[in-house]
Amino acid sequence: MKKILIVFSLILISCHNDVEDIQITGVVQNKTTNKPINNIKLKVECWYYGNSPDESYTGKYDTIIKTNVNGEYKAIFKKGTFIYIEVDEPEFEKIGASKHLRWSNYTIDISLKSK
């Protein structure tokens, strides 16, 4: 009986859950000058489990956002477990950033290198 309880506890601990009410913020800056970059497009993907029986992602939210004059951005999602951010602007090297989510609020700053 004790072994069954231990196995059941491990199964519960290993189950993946989505985080709700996610807010991702950050600043995009020039890697050389450390100055914020205005009007940069970021493609943000937020993957979620939903009701997955095998702990695989069942869907994602996609959004494209732009930085403001201070290089700041904000993305809000209903739920998720994994964030991927991609910046592909002609004057900068392409870059991606990712994060497995455990909490609702994250700051992900991005430094872009000129081509």
Rank of each mutant, 00 (worst) to 15 (best):
M1N: 14
K2E: 15
K3H: 13
L5A: 15
I6A: 15
F8Q: 07
S9T: 15
S9G: 13
S9W: 07
S9F: 10
L10H: 02
L10W: 01
I11T: 12
L12N: 15
L12F: 11
L12K: 11
I13N: 06
I13R: 06
I13C: 11
S14V: 09
D18I: 03
E20I: 08
E20L: 08
E20V: 14
D21P: 03
I22G: 07
I22N: 04
T25Q: 13
Q29T: 15
N30G: 07
N30M: 04
K31Q: 12
T32I: 12
T33Y: 02
T33A: 12
T33D: 05
K35S: 13
P36V: 04
I37K: 00
I37Y: 07
N39W: 00
I40F: 04
L42I: 11
L42N: 01
V44L: 04
V44K: 00
E45Q: 11
C46E: 12
C46M: 13
C46T: 07
W47G: 00
W47D: 04
Y48H: 06
Y48G: 02
Y49N: 05
G50I: 02
N51A: 10
N51V: 10
P53C: 04
P53T: 07
D54I: 14
E55S: 14
S56Q: 11
S56F: 12
S56L: 13
S56I: 14
G59P: 02
G59L: 11
Y61N: 10
D62L: 11
T63Y: 03
T63R: 13
T63H: 03
I65K: 01
K66L: 10
T67S: 07
N68K: 06
N68E: 06
N68S: 06
N70L: 09
N70S: 12
G71P: 06
G71F: 09
Y73W: 08
K74H: 05
F77V: 02
F82Q: 10
V87C: 07
V87W: 00
E89M: 10
P90M: 01
P90I: 03
E91F: 06
E91L: 05
F92Y: 15
F92L: 09
E93P: 06
E93S: 14
K94C: 01
I95F: 03
G96Q: 03
G96V: 00
G96P: 01
A97Y: 01
A97V: 07
S98M: 07
K99Y: 12
K99F: 08
K99T: 14
H100A: 08
H100K: 14
H100S: 11
L101W: 04
R102C: 11
R102L: 12
S104C: 08
S104I: 01
S104L: 06
S104P: 08
N105D: 12
T107C: 13
I108F: 02
D109S: 12
S114M: 04
K115H: 14
K115R: 14
K115D: 07
K115N: 15
